Amino acid sequence: MANRELVVLGTASQAPTRTRNHNGYFLRWDGEGLLFDPGEGTQRQMLFAGVTASQVTRVLITHFHGDHCLGVPGVLQRMSLDRVPHPVRAYYPAADAEVFWRLRHASLFHDTLTLVEHPVDGDGVVADRTDGAGSDGFRLEARALSHLVPAVGYRLVEPDGRRMLRDELAARDIVGPDVGRLRRAGRLVTGGRLVTLEEVSVPRRGQRFAFIMDTRLCDAAFELADGADMLVCESTFADADAALARDYGHLTAGQAGQIAAASGARLLVLTHFSQRYETGPPERLRDEAAAAFTGEIALAADLDRIPVPKRKP
Rank of each mutant, 00 (worst) to 15 (best):
M1Y: 14
N3S: 11
R4C: 11
R18W: 14
R18I: 11
H22E: 15
L27D: 01
W29D: 10
L35H: 00
E40Y: 10
T42C: 15
M46Q: 01
L47S: 11
V51K: 07
V51D: 12
S54M: 01
Q55E: 15
R58C: 05
R58V: 05
L60S: 06
D67Y: 05
H68R: 04
G71A: 08
G71S: 04
V72T: 10
V72A: 07
R78V: 11
M79Y: 07
P85V: 14
Y92L: 07
Y92H: 09
P93L: 08
A94V: 03
A94D: 08
D96S: 15
A97V: 08
F100Y: 13
W101C: 07
H105G: 03
S107P: 03
F109R: 04
F109E: 14
T114N: 13
P119H: 07
P119N: 06
D123K: 00
G124E: 12
G124P: 11
D128W: 12
L140V: 10
L140C: 02
E141S: 09
S146C: 09
L148S: 14
P150T: 12
V152W: 15
V152N: 04
V152H: 13
R155H: 09
R162E: 09
M164L: 15
L169D: 02
A171I: 06
G176Q: 11
R181G: 06
L182I: 12
T190C: 09
G191H: 12
G192D: 09
R193C: 08
L194E: 15
V195Q: 04
V195R: 00
L197Q: 08
V200N: 03
V202D: 11
Q207L: 14
A210C: 04
T215E: 04
L217T: 10
L217F: 08
C218Y: 12
D219W: 12
A221K: 03
L224V: 08
D229Q: 04
M230S: 05
V232T: 00
C233F: 06
A238Y: 05
A240E: 14
D241A: 14
D247P: 02
G249F: 09
H250E: 13
H250K: 14
T252L: 12
A261N: 03
G264W: 01
T271I: 05
R276E: 13
Y277C: 00
P281A: 13
P281G: 02
A291W: 10
I297H: 02
D302M: 08
I306F: 10
P309D: 11
P309K: 04
R311K: 06
R311Y: 05
